[in-house]
Structure formats: C-alpha cells, structure tokens
Simulated scan of single mutants.
Amino acid sequence: MEYTDPFYLPGKTGKHTVKYFARDNVANDKKHSEYKHVVGVVYVDLTGPSLSYDFNGARFKKGEMNYISGKTDIVLRATDQESGLKEIKYMIDGSGEVAYDKPFNIEKDGLHSITIVGYDHVNNRNVDNFEFTVDNVPSDIFVTYSASPTDTINNIPVYPSYTSIFLAGTDTGTECHRITYSINGQPLQVYDNKITGFRKNAHVELKIFAEDKLLNKSEIDIEFKTNAL
C-alpha cells in the first residue's frame, strides 16, 4: 500500500513487523530502478500487569476469609513481561489511590478490602480486589472449678485441695489456639485436660494465658486457698 497518512497497527498483542521502502528519483528510469528496503519491528502491548498479593506475618484462613492481625504486612506484587511495570497503586476500602512502595499493615479491626491497580510503561492498567478481616482481639478465658468454695478468707475463696480446675478459651474471630498456665511462678505448662494436684492448706496464684491463631494473647490471674480436705 502507498503511504499517505499515519496508520494504526493491528489490534492484537504480539510482535508485528512493518516493512517499508522508499523509491529514489533514479526509479524513473526503469533500467536503473533501485529499491531500498528497511524493516522495523514494533511490539504492541495491549494488556496491563499481572497482579497478586500476599500476607507476611500472622494469618489464618477460615473458609474463604483470610484473618490477619494489625501487625501483619500486606504485600502487593505486579509483573509485566511486555513493556514492563511502571508502578503499583492501591486503595483501602474505596479510598483514593496511594502509590505502593513497600508492604503496609492495617491496624483497625474488621472487614477490609484492597484494590490493586497496576500500570505498565505504555499506560495499560489492570485492577484486582481482595478482602480480609483484621482481628486484634484475643481469646476470652473461662475458668470452671469442680467444687464450690468452702470459705472465704480476706476476700480470697477457699477450695478443697482435691478441686480440679478446667480452662477454656473462645474467640469470635479466629479461634483459641493454645492455653498455658503457671502456678505460683513456676514455668509455664500447656493446658491439656484439667489442673489438679493442689497441696493442702496452700495459697495458690494461677496465671493463665490464651493465644489465638493470630498470636493475639490474653491473660488472667486467679488466686485462692486450699483447705485440709
């Protein structure tokens, strides 16, 4: 085709070769006509960057929902094999676009959404969205005694020495992962079934710790005495 005006390249991603040539004034003489061929290679990039995300830190997946803590880093990634990645931007819960330069975290509890926007060097744009829940609330600890107190001394309840103590942890976000306890400053022990074996006529200080799947920790202290039974 004779070139008269600028033209569009094919609307298909890939390599397209444009061959063009010029005829010089000598070509007016058919015996001495000469053509100079020049080949130019153009790559048409019509697609935006590939986007992905990850969590660096405490994370727990329940069903289709990811739970993270306020200290968990949110990592955004983008790659572009064609014209190359220009920049990544993101929006938190529908807010304005912010340039992404390093992992970040969200401290506020509750459900959040992130929109990732990736741009390549020819301004193709791609968008992705994901949701997650931030959970900074530790588990609640519940203590149950197998016997009732027989007395109270200085506002401290007195239980039979054979009393067993049962512990439980509940969590509205993830779930209680582990309960540990310490008796009178002794090394921590992992709670398994029940706590027994208290000495008679003893003063007991019991520290109880609960840890959920996101490593949120809670602690309660209880104090009681045992009698001679």
Rank of each mutant, 00 (worst) to 15 (best):
M1T: 13
E2M: 11
Y3G: 08
P6F: 11
P6M: 08
G11L: 11
T13R: 15
G14F: 07
V18Y: 02
R23V: 14
D24R: 10
D24M: 09
A27D: 14
K30E: 13
E34L: 11
E34I: 13
Y35W: 13
V39L: 06
G40A: 14
V44D: 11
D45V: 04
L46Y: 13
L46H: 12
S50L: 15
L51M: 04
S52P: 05
F55A: 02
A58Q: 12
M65D: 06
Y67A: 01
I68Y: 03
S69L: 03
I74S: 05
V75G: 00
L76T: 03
S83Q: 07
S83M: 10
G84S: 02
Y90D: 04
D93A: 03
E97M: 10
K102P: 08
N105V: 04
N105D: 12
I106A: 01
E107R: 10
K108M: 11
S113Q: 14
N124W: 10
N129P: 05
E131I: 12
T133K: 12
V134C: 08
I141T: 01
T144R: 14
D151I: 01
D151M: 09
N154L: 09
N155Q: 10
N155I: 01
P157S: 04
Y162F: 11
T163K: 09
T163S: 05
F166L: 09
G169R: 00
D171S: 00
R178M: 11
S182Q: 06
Q186V: 07
L188V: 01
N193W: 05
K200A: 12
K213M: 12
K217R: 15
I220S: 03
I222E: 07
K225F: 10
A228W: 04
L229D: 13
